[in-house]
Computed example of a mutant assay.
Amino acid sequence: AVGVLGLNRVDPVSRVASVGYWLAHEATGRGLMTRAVRRLVGLAFAHFPVDRIEIHCAPGNTASCAIPERLGFTREAVLRRALCAHEFRDDRVVWGLLREEWEG
């Protein structure tokens, strides 16, 4: 395995799902994760009661942020200090995609 991908959260009340991914450095640059995320987004809209999918990325991680941009997500917000791991704090860029944008 060279990475992981999944739906981190599916909220049937607000009809929102969140996609998360990680790819080993040696596997980058080949479009693997972009193709995998594209497939997962299609499956999520087809099989889950969601109207919106979000991807959260670190603002400095340009490779990670390039994936939702390539797939037609909209860069909606920067959540300041939204990630706290141990004593490390980081911002998060929120990317959003609506069902009608995907199907259109």
Rank of each mutant, 00 (worst) to 15 (best):
T28N: 04
F45N: 13
A17C: 11
D91K: 00
L83D: 08
W95H: 14
A66Y: 09
T62D: 15
G3V: 00
G6F: 03
F45A: 08
A85Q: 04
A63W: 11
R38I: 00
G42Q: 13
C65A: 15
A85E: 10
W22H: 05
G3Q: 01
N61I: 05
G29M: 03
G31A: 06
R52C: 13
A77V: 08
A27Y: 01
G60R: 07
N8I: 05
Y21A: 00
R15Q: 14
R15M: 07
R70G: 04
A46T: 04
H56M: 10
P49Q: 14
A1F: 01
R99V: 08
V50Y: 15
S14F: 14
E103A: 04
G72E: 12
H86E: 12
P68G: 11
I67N: 08
L97Q: 10
G72F: 15
R52I: 12
I53R: 08
F45Q: 11
V78T: 12
L23W: 04
G31L: 02
I53T: 02
G104P: 03
A44T: 15
G3I: 00
G20F: 14
V19P: 00
D11L: 06
F88G: 03
L79Q: 11
A63I: 10
A24G: 15
L71I: 07
A44K: 10
V78F: 02
H86R: 08
F88C: 06
A17T: 07
N8E: 14
H25F: 02
G96Q: 09
R30S: 05
V50H: 13
